[in-house]
Design a protein around this nucleic acid. Structure first.
Length: 200
DNA sequence: CCTACGATCGTCT
DNA sequence: GACGATCGTAGGT
């Protein structure tokens, strides 16, 4: 029978718009020599490869976005604004190039270590925003392409909300109004909405 | 609470 | 040469 025994890969097989809200409540956990930090996701965004003007894959494969075109269950990490990293989970079959941006969550394990990594942050803001989340978890360029089903960096599906909130994506110039952002209603760790100054 | 702005550099045109 | 799937700070309401 088809079907992987791995519940994460089972989930990531679906269409990105179905998968994204189901990743709410999942836990991303990273163990390093310093210790373990875990974040339970409260906010994500869907990106649908070549069909999506807001996606890094919209203009096809490049050196940067290569991981998006690979198998599901890997982490796509990119560097932006000359100083920040953000991370996505690759979704769907190889070549589809769809992914879910992990935008925010609550630190549920290793808060002490996360506070060291983000020394001026309140607990609420430790992973409130995609670059903050990567900083709290010490995710960087070295983790681009990481397999999330095993190893030091794992994603474990959890209990998604019955009715996730949806709305426009944050910070995009193109296709920002597509309601492809999903979050847990009322969760204080959801990031503040910011419209791009260049949005059309 | 809000809006405005500068930092800083890899990536693509 | 332009532009970010951002963040922290500064200042006003």
């Amino acid at each position: 029978m088809p079907g992987s025994a791995d519940p994460l890969l089972e989930l990531l097989r679906g269409e990105v718009l179905d998968v994204a809200p189901r990743l709410l409540g999942a836990t991303l956990r990273h163990t390093t020599a310093e210790g373990t930090v875990a974040v339970r996701l409260s906010e994500v965004e869907a990106y649908d490869g070549p069909n999506d003007p807001g996606s890094h894959a919209y203009r096809g494969q490049t050196a940067r976005n290569g991981v998006m075109f690979g198998p599901p269950g890997r982490l796509y990490v990119y560097f932006t604004y000359g100083m920040h990293f953000c991370c996505n989970v690759v979704v769907g079959p190889p070549g589809r190039a769809s992914a879910v941006l992990l935008r925010a969550g609550e630190v549920t394990e290793g808060a002490e270590l996360a506070r060291v990594r983000r020394s001026r942050s309140t607990d609420r803001d430790l992973a409130r925003g995609p670059a903050r989340l990567c900083q709290a978890l010490a995710i960087g360029r070295a983790h681009d392409g990481s397999d999330l089903t095993s190893g030091p960096l794992t994603l474990t599906p959890g209990e998604p909300p019955r009715t996730p909130a949806t709305g426009p994506r944050v910070g995009l110039r193109l296709a920002a109004e597509w309601p492809w952002r999903f979050w847990v209603e009322g969760d204080p760790t959801v990031s503040a909405y910011r419209r791009s100054p260049r949005a059309s």
